[in-house]
Design a protein around this nucleic acid. Structure first.
Lengths: 150, 150
DNA sequence: TATTCTCAATAATAACTCTAGATGAGAGTA
DNA sequence: TACTCTCATCTAGAGTTATTATTGAGAATA
């Protein structure tokens, strides 16, 4: 039996999106997406810049793969493509759902509800600042039992 | 190649604890632990009570397995054993770290810092109430980059 | 009564195999 | 310059097998 039938294995949005399509989660794809997550929202890079940055961080990924991966991540809705008037394209991280999204998860049936909360976002910011971290995103997971399962 | 070598598969504390010891994550073990999580902290049950409750919820687990599992969960530090003067033992969920614990996680090196925050706990409570869920616990995960990795 | 032991049957999961999807290097295209 | 294509090589992950931990039922123990 493969692990995918386990009760409690949680996978990434990238992995999930790829797998349900017969596609594969590769180190290269992860590196490209991580790069965008690291630089944060609102910043855009060209394919060449992505390539340079990965090479500098001793993560060699070929330019052809960069192009293929950028196209894929745009198709998956994880990146946004900007067309420049000077020619060429740039890519930026697309927040895939409500910013500052939190989840209420039923531990019995897995039902999930999203909600927003400003104080939670603020708490994340403060914690990051105190510890000298650069914030990327925060998500509150509330483990609970839904009405149907009580 | 087995999934365990993947980059981004997150497993449960129970699964992790068992696997690193060559032990297995079984439905029975999960059911027993879930039962304690569902009734919440501070409440204790005897082996017989655990058995009854599981049988009632149409989750048949043999009494022998209940005893074996309770001993295991105590060894793993997930449950606490109380010795009663009238004879027999009772078990209760052990909060394995700071209650209302939140995590600041470096997405590059994996370094993790814990912190507490009252507003976050409150936000979880409110969200659970609005949606009719019974709260179990909430944890805020802040994805960020630590000083060493910036 | 509360708990443990025995042992045949069951099943979690590590290990291995295999195949199609993905990559790298470099040539091709516009 | 900006990107795509080709193709040999590589590898992610599905599928399968095999091993051995775990379970259930009931007897045994204290």
């Amino acid at each position: 039996m493969s692990l995918s039938s386990q009760y409690n294995v949680i996978t990434s949005p990238l992995g999930d999106g790829l797998h349900k399509d017969g596609k594969r989660l590769t180190p290269q794809r992860l590196k490209v997406l991580n790069l965008f997550e690291n630089i944060g929202y609102g910043k855009h890079l060209s394919a060449e810049e992505v390539h340079e940055k990965l090479v500098k961080s001793s993560s060699k990924v070929s330019l052809a793969t960069i192009y293929r991966t950028l196209r894929l991540l745009v198709q998956m809705g994880l990146l946004h493509e900007l067309e420049l008037s000077e020619g060429g394209h740039r890519y930026e991280l697309l927040s895939n759902d409500t910013p500052d999204h939190h989840h209420l998860i039923c531990i019995r049936c897995g039902r999930t509800e999203e909600f927003e909360n400003e104080e939670v976002l603020e708490a994340g910011k403060v914690a990051a600042k105190i510890n000298g971290f650069k914030l990327i995103e925060s998500s509150l997971n509330v483990r609970a039992i839904c009405p149907n399962c009580i």
